[in-house]
């Protein structure tokens, strides 16, 4: 199968001006993916499905990723010559910048006809609050329908062009998006025998250690005598 770079070059030749870039995966799996712009995404998907050398006829998986807003500190080193004539000083300047958050929809494509894959597509939203639309690929691969509904349900990505975009797992009146990183679950903790991690923090909040429990108990026992 072609590498993602080869696919990108072919796509750029076929769709001039389209935003297509390769997102490298530094992990040993090295499954690099193609990040597509919104405008020609459906046409690109249809091309990938029908192209005789790729024939990506199966969309096996659609999932979402939440990338929250992130503060990135960049350190740049510069040498400043010492006016007194000594050795030049190395000065570190730190620049903080906020990388805005966004939501991502990921498609894993395989070819049943040619027996290769996966080719991974990514679509990104503008941000996490109001520009949360990406084009739906359900018109190209019908198998995406339920999984795109799941991405809509759990991440809140609005997939334009989807034939039936409703919640699929949670109920219709539900307002939250539970798979987002900043989701706060309803606080209905109850006692657990061996809490640890986040659950231990909840346990401490709901069942605080009673203040000075030991001295109070003997006094309570003595009270009926007096």
């Amino acid at each position: 199968m072609e590498t993602p770079e080869q696919i990108r070059d072919r796509l750029l030749a076929r769709f001039p001006g389209a935003e297509i870039s390769v997102v490298a995966n530094p992990a040993p799996a090295a499954q690099h993916s193609l990040l597509l712009g919104h405008a020609p995404a459906v046409e690109i998907a249809r091309f990938l499905r029908d192209d005789p050398t790729l024939k990506l006829d199966q969309c096996s998986n659609v999932t979402g990723i939440d990338w929250p807003e992130k503060e990135i500190v960049e350190t740049t080193k510069s040498t400043v010559p010492d006016p007194a004539g000594g050795p030049p000083k190395v000065v570190e300047t730190k620049i903080k910048r906020i990388q805005p958050g966004y939501l991502e929809v990921v498609y894993h494509l395989y070819s049943i006809a040619l027996g290769h894959g996966p080719v991974i597509l990514r679509l990104r939203t503008g941000n996490r609050t109001d520009a949360v639309t990406v084009p739906s690929l359900t018109p190209v691969w019908r198998a995406c329908e339920f999984q795109e509904r799941e991405v809509f349900d759990l991440f809140g990505v609005v997939l334009t062009g989807h034939p039936d975009l409703r919640r699929i797992l949670m109920w219709d009146a539900f307002k939250d998006f539970p798979m987002r990183r900043d989701y706060v679950a309803p606080d209905d903790y109850e006692w657990e025998p061996t809490p640890h991690g986040d659950v231990l923090e909840k346990a401490k909040r709901h069942y605080p250690v009673p203040p000075a429990a030991a001295p109070v108990a003997p006094a309570a026992q003595e009270a009926p005598k007096a």
Binding site: A173, F174, K175, D176, P186, E190, W191, P210
Partner: peptide, 25 residues
């Protein structure tokens, strides 16, 4: 009922009460 964030009510108070932790003093 299906609420905006959870079931309404989250438990039936006539049937269920949150367990009380009895600490070993």
């Amino acid at each position: 009922e299906f609420g905006a964030h959870d079931l309404e009510p989250p438990a039936n108070p006539d049937v269920w009460k949150a367990p009380v932790l009895v600490r070993n003093e």
